[in-house]
Amino acid sequence: MREKTPVILRCLFLLLWVAYFSPPGYAQPLPLYRIAYGTTGENPTALWIGVEQGFYRKHGVHVEVLYMRSGPLAMSTLAAGDVQMVFTSANNVLNGAGAGLDAVVVATVIPKAEGALIARPEIKKPEDLKGKYVGIQSIGGGGWANNMLALDHLNLDPERDRIQFLVLADQASRVQALETGRVQASWLGYTFAEVLKKKGFVVLLDLGRAPIQYLGTSLVTRKLNVRQDPKSIEGVIKGTLDSVRFILNPENKSVVVKTLMKRLRLSRPEEAESGYYALQTTYSTDLRPKVEGARKIHRIVSRVNPNLQKIKPEEIIEDSLIRKIYASGY
């Protein structure tokens, strides 16, 4: 017994030493939060920077960012419980709500329409699109919504004007389809739109400059998650806010450009710079979602999804956490 006592004491001492000197994350790993997104342009930069700069870990959340082929697919992973959040726009949230998913916007990074409706050089004016093909990423997705917002603003109706949608993959694929003439127009984010503008392609509408109200790219989760784990969601919102502030600080331009080059697989810094400057005008440090931005797209999406007639735009907004954050002075 005398021989065992020193051994026991040494073991107890070792355990106490490990517990005292180990970092907090060693004993209790940070909760994992997976965020899916379905766009291939510059919009998800806040997520990428948030992970790379450690902003999410600073607020007690380990975030993994996952690319999905489209917004609707990303929303399906939220419904299945494979991810805890989606970085997407109001149309996908509305479609999810129409299907019975308790999806809500908890913070909005891009509070307006953005990107450009780009057309081939032979398309000189909006009316020239009648009877032509427009490239989209998916029916009902964010790219489709931006195309629909642009066409609506230009007084074009796909059914009346016989405009057909061609589903392609990502924005790079739509750029290729425009160059080969497979489609005559498509909405693109500013990074890819700028590449085609330099080749003589026509900007039929810059959505960011048009007076279009829209609830753009946002952090979306389920009401169930808000009730069960508000602390983690608040951490994600704060980390995203830190990231947006970092991106909008001119001193961090080189870091943001490098991230855009890496994530979008761009070979030249000037290509990434167009995306960087676009973020300076589209991102907002006021992450409070506005119901006015959901009303117009609700009307448009309701044309193809009758289930939305029973959904009110304000039902997809849950702003209690972001209001709490701002009220604290953060």
Rank of each mutant, 00 (worst) to 15 (best):
M148K: 12
R160S: 13
V61F: 06
G54A: 07
V167S: 08
D128V: 09
I110D: 06
L117R: 05
P121R: 00
A145T: 03
D152K: 14
S70T: 11
F55W: 03
R69K: 14
G142E: 11
P72Q: 01
N91A: 15
F165W: 10
L151K: 05
H62D: 15
H153Y: 15
G135P: 03
M75Y: 03
E159P: 10
A107H: 06
E64N: 12
G135I: 06
V63E: 05
A145V: 05
G96P: 02
A80D: 10
K130H: 09
E122C: 12
A145G: 10
G98K: 02
F87K: 00
V134G: 04
E64I: 08
Q84P: 07
R69V: 11
I136V: 14
G142S: 15
G141W: 05
L66V: 13
G131F: 06
A116G: 11
V83H: 06
V104S: 07
N95C: 11
P158Y: 03
G135C: 07
L156P: 00
H153S: 11
G135T: 07
E127L: 15
W144R: 01
L117C: 04
A169R: 15
G100A: 04
A79S: 12
V134S: 00
N92R: 12
A169H: 13
P72L: 00
F165M: 09
E114V: 14
F55Q: 06
P126A: 03
A107E: 04
L94S: 07
V93D: 08
F87W: 07
D157F: 08
E122F: 14
D170R: 10
L117T: 00
L66D: 01
G54P: 06
L117D: 05
E114D: 15
L149W: 03
R160M: 12
L154M: 05
